[in-house]
Simulated scan of single mutants.
Amino acid sequence: MAETTLHIAGRQYDLRCRDGEEAHLSHLAGLIERKARLAQQATPGLTEVRTLLFAALFLADELNDMKREVAGRQEALPLDGSEDVAVRAIEVLTARLEKLSDRLAGPVADA
């Protein structure tokens, strides 16, 4: 198991992850950090919990919009055999995003 430190909303979080996932988790933390900064700018004085809540809501909203867009494209285009592979890849990626979102939304281990 590898260890990494993420910096989100002014806090440091030490996490364990599978070897090689450090850069990916750092990238995801960057996405959350940007949304947390947006929340803090829009509503100064938010508590840490509310900042992270709004960051999660912003990200969930983006994910929801992407899912609707993908679903709309699937309905608009008749699928032949070659497009089935692309659709399956999108479904797999969507499932991975949801799983990562659930893992990040779980309890945070403080150092």
Rank of each mutant, 00 (worst) to 15 (best):
M66S: 10
L53H: 12
G106L: 09
L59R: 03
D80W: 00
D102I: 13
E21F: 03
T47W: 07
L31R: 07
R68F: 01
E98F: 04
N64W: 03
G30I: 08
E69K: 05
E83M: 10
R73W: 04
T94E: 03
T5W: 06
Q41I: 14
A76K: 09
G106H: 09
K67D: 01
M1C: 08
E21L: 07
A29R: 08
Q40A: 10
Q41M: 15
E33G: 05
R103H: 08
D61T: 04
V92E: 12
M1I: 08
Q74D: 04
I8W: 07
R88V: 07
L15N: 00
K35N: 13
D80A: 06
F54L: 15
L28Y: 00
L93C: 04
I90T: 02
R18W: 06
K99H: 09
R16G: 08
A95Q: 14
Q12L: 03
H7M: 12
L59H: 03
R88Q: 09
L97K: 02
G30A: 06
L6K: 06
I8M: 13
L31G: 02
A95R: 12
M1S: 14
R88D: 03
L100Q: 13
V87S: 02
R68A: 06
Q41G: 12
E91I: 10
A89L: 11
A71V: 11
A71G: 02
E91M: 11
L63T: 07
I32D: 01
A89G: 01
L28S: 00
T4G: 09
K67E: 05
K67C: 03
A105Y: 02
L25C: 09
V87A: 05
H7D: 07
L100W: 06
P107C: 14
L97F: 07
A42V: 13
E91L: 14
E91N: 13
C17F: 01
A9N: 11
R18E: 15
V70H: 06
G45T: 11
